[in-house]
Design a protein around this nucleic acid. Structure first.
Lengths: 366, 366
DNA sequence: CTGAAAGCGCTTACAG
DNA sequence: CTGAAAGCGCTTACAG
């Protein structure tokens, strides 16, 4: 009896449809119909079906995603592109991302994250993401700047908080101006007069909208606008702290602001920190409000009054819209122009109180 | 002159290697060698090479990731599986994830995130992730519980902070016990005597290690261990606040703790909040320390003294290790047993001061 | 230096 | 109800 030919040891590999078919005594397509194909699976007789399922179980068969994607032209994966600020993804990202994950899971889609260091640096990278590994891409674009970014064709996009309108891309945003307007008005109505606004980078639409809301609110209540109370800070805690420290230094011995409206929660945190250094207490000496209602707002002490942007819901909505575009590009092609605007909402916490009865003066700095 | 036959309008599609080859007047493989293949690209003559590059540019050719993955059995993507706590990914995730993204980008790998609601609920999901769309998976596993999880074969894994050892999976952890030991000792050395420990869920190895470090430190300095000063809190701010409120209520009129060592920064934040409610000040009346050095630690006022776990570096390391396993499974197969342990480091901030000269008493609660 | 062939694992028409 | 064929877009041997 001849010895069996020495077989080349194959690298262990996962079972394929062909393997399943062989064991079940059917073709690979029959196995495909039962195991993966929703549409045609009814055409298999119950007995065959059972045999195939048993074989699949025995072999621990998993369809191969790459092969499937190649045949279907669908990866069942959406991408998220975000810019890394100061080397890290931040609270804003985390909130939106939570919403994206939730919605993606609901639709049985995977989510892959592309982190960029700078939109401008290499627009090429955005193109490289769109190589078939994702079916569509969500751009977290509050700092998106390039005016003439040629977005890759063949890939549907949705943007969130886009700083500039992207041609053919639906944008999801929130009513930032209204949020700024409402919270400023509330401070004034509570009796605050000198309201300092720590604004964001002034080339960005979001901060601009907040400034507009702030100014409109003052005007609506016949409060004068004092340019000395509008300071450009930035977007994070460190920048907020620095901006306020500088302001306090410039105003030693002069009247303190009654309240400080910060462009976002991060800046507000920095602001509270700088106030603490100066021996000023929140909200006893000065009230502080933020914007976003990110995790940070609930995590600081005192907790922050803020304008809540429904970031989670916005992320989830982006997924819904994107999937719609992926599935029927023709229907949704026309609707690219009007952005979807989410309402914002005031959140009251401990960082706001009525202004102190006697006007506070900025203490001397060391 | 006959009209050209009406061509069926094809769905617009991205250019393929065949398209590029056709334009450049070469075969698809030649194009492949120049555009995608690192190894064999030298074999193409400079002129042909130029023609191919020009054609690719003209067509805006991008290699198709799915086709590539199918042929190469390599997706150039790593997966990250994490459990969603209270419906959201948290600071811990964000820090580790930042490290993962950074390292993945360095290696030119993509990153996809799989969020689970519960490890136990459907271990099947873990299997479904491993369908060829990722080359390996990082498990963020501090709450991983199932004793007999059969991890899918054919996929390399690395775990971070695994709660239980996973067979054949290298674990990356930090020296939590030492961190707890050091910070407790420092408090004692500063003069603190009654040190309350707000511990985490007691079925998890991380919290257990912190308790051990806390107890060892007390013993090493001949301090008695008082079971009344060891309280199980949880992992987040709300649980921390609740646990401390309950403790304060139970101790009205009795001596306050000198210092509180919290299982993580989130619990510490909650703790500071509850202290503020009770009219107790940090660090004047009581010192508070956290664990992790997450974003939250720098975001509260006063900023939190804490034990820094190098979460970013740990995430980055997980990627390095995982890629190593993906590339040479045989070499790394033996080294599964000894976890990689990162050192921790004390971080001093404003939430700690020497104990007050006179012992404080827990004020009556309303 | 270059190309024709076969294969990665799956699907979708098309025949029977 | 079931299977043989062709194709998704790329690679890797193998011939020339």
């Amino acid at each position: 009896m001849p010895r069996p030919a020495k077989k080349k040891i194959k690298h262990i590999r996962a079972a394929t449809l062909a393997d399943v078919g062989r064991i079940a005594g059917v073709s690979a397509m029959a196995a495909s119909a039962v195991l993966n194909g929703a549409r045609t699976s009814s055409r298999i007789s119950p007995e065959t079906r059972e045999r195939i399922l048993a074989a699949a179980r025995q072999l621990a068969y998993r369809p191969n995603a790459a092969a499937r994607a190649l045949a279907n032209r669908r990866m069942d994966t959406i991408g998220v592109a975000a810019v890394i600020v100061d080397g890290e993804l931040n609270h804003y990202f985390l909130e939106v991302f939570n919403g994206i994950l939730e919605a993606a899971a609901r639709h049985d889609q995977n989510t892959t994250v592309f982190a960029l260091h700078d939109w401008a640096k290499d627009p090429e990278r955005l193109h490289r993401f769109c190589d078939g590994r994702i079916d569509g891409l969500i751009l977290l674009a509050p700092t998106f700047h390039e005016d003439h970014v040629a977005l890759p064709a063949h890939t549907p996009f949705v943007s969130i908080h886009a700083n500039i309108p992207l041609p053919g891309v639906l944008n999801i945003e929130s009513d930032e101006e209204r949020g700024a307007y409402e919270i400023t008005r509330r401070l004034v109505v509570q009796g605050h007069r000198r309201i300092l606004h720590l604004a964001g980078p002034n080339d960005l639409i979001g901060p601009q909208r907040r400034i507009r809301g702030y100014q409109r609110a003052l005007a609506s209540l016949r409060q004068p606008f004092d340019a000395d109370l509008l300071v450009s800070a930035g977007f994070n805690a460190k920048e907020g702290a620095n901006a306020l420290r500088a302001w306090l230094r410039r105003h030693q011995g002069k009247p303190l602001a009654d309240a400080i409206f910060c462009v976002n929660d991060g800046v507000a945190i920095g602001c509270i920190e700088a106030l603490a250094e100066a021996g000023l207490r929140v909200p006893d000496d000065v009230s502080v409000v933020g914007f976003d209602d990110s995790l940070a707002a609930r995590m600081c002490v005192p907790q922050l009054s803020t304008v809540r942007q429904p970031l989670r819901a916005m992320g989830a909505r982006a997924v819904d819209v994107l999937l719609n575009r992926i599935e029927k590009p023709e229907t949704s092609a026309g609707s690219t122009d009007k952005p979807i605007v989410f309402p914002v909402e005031l959140v009251h916490r401990a960082s706001v109180a009525p202004p102190p009865s006697a006007e506070r003066v900025v203490p001397p700095m060391r």
